[in-house]
Design a binder for these strands. Structure first.
Lengths: 149, 149
DNA sequence: ATATAATTGACAACATATTGTCATATTGAC
DNA sequence: GTCAATATGACAATATGTTGTCAATTATAT
């Protein structure tokens, strides 16, 4: 069997996603390194910031496409470091809700102040319609895949 | 400062790339698990398969957007497991060229036989023009980012 | 040709992430 | 309401990946 035209492009996209993920982590580490953070920890804060309601560890993991164990580990470390708080979850005795602290709010705002001009600059020479199409396609691909846990 | 329209979409793409990368690794692990491989090792073979010339470890790392140390580690393990061979590189005394073995050729062919219908199926309901735009955009983003080593 | 810079393999320390397992909590079928 | 299935936190083992460093090799500038 051979790839269809679309199957071929799809495969190239998959490989490019892997590559880009590695490069973006490196880029994020550069931005966060002076704040005692890392890409992985910044992403946790980002998941919280983008949610309208507080999230549990499991919910964060699903938003991020990772296992709850990986997220739990980071969240616990960040909690010890004063970057995250747990508050009681009325809907679940064990699954607490994860929240920003004052400290992490400040750091996150600072990181945003660096990320925004970076994103604007990186996307400046890219076509808006193509960017929109890219986001649409990536989301559709994600939707068809299952979680590991 | 605020995100431009394009900067906003760009940021969403970045987060979706992280998520998708995690989901795709899980998917790849499912496909490879019966063959004593993993996503990470399959990607090494893929990088070699897609190149017209044999590659050094550093070259593989650059193609994959990872550090040479990470790739070196996997390549050494795979070499011990009979999945990769080193051959002398006329252009460099230490940097050997990495090659398939008969064993890895067979496994890779088998994985391809699973990946192809999967990619065709996953992309079946997606628009070809949008897929092409996605690949173009992702490659352009990669090009603007630097390697960690 | 020589000196300097960049590349590469090797090794170690550490960060990040998956898999497996267990006990506890919640959900859903009946 | 009961019971099975599912979801969750905790913990351990392992795989994957980055950073830092050193010595050896190659490339580059002069």
């Amino acid at each position: 069997m051979k790839h269809t035209d679309k199957g071929h492009i799809f495969t190239e996209i998959v490989l490019e996603v892997f590559k880009l993920s590695g490069l973006l982590i490196t880029e994020g580490d550069k931005i966060t390194e002076t704040n005692g953070l890392s890409s992985a920890r910044w992403k946790i804060l980002g998941a919280l910031a983008r949610s309208t309601t507080p999230l549990t560890v499991s919910q964060i993991a699903r938003v991020m496409g990772q296992t709850r164990q990986a997220v739990q580990s980071l969240v616990n470390i960040m909690n010890k470091g004063g970057l995250l708080d747990f508050i009681d979850n009325p809907a679940h005795k064990r699954a607490k809700l994860v929240c920003f602290t004052t400290k992490s709010q400040q750091i996150y705002a600072k990181l945003d102040a660096e990320q925004i001009p970076w994103a604007n600059q990186q996307s400046g020479h890219l076509d808006k319609t193509e960017l929109q199409a890219t986001l649409t396609i990536l989301k559709k691909i994600s939707r068809g895949l299952s979680y590991s846990d």
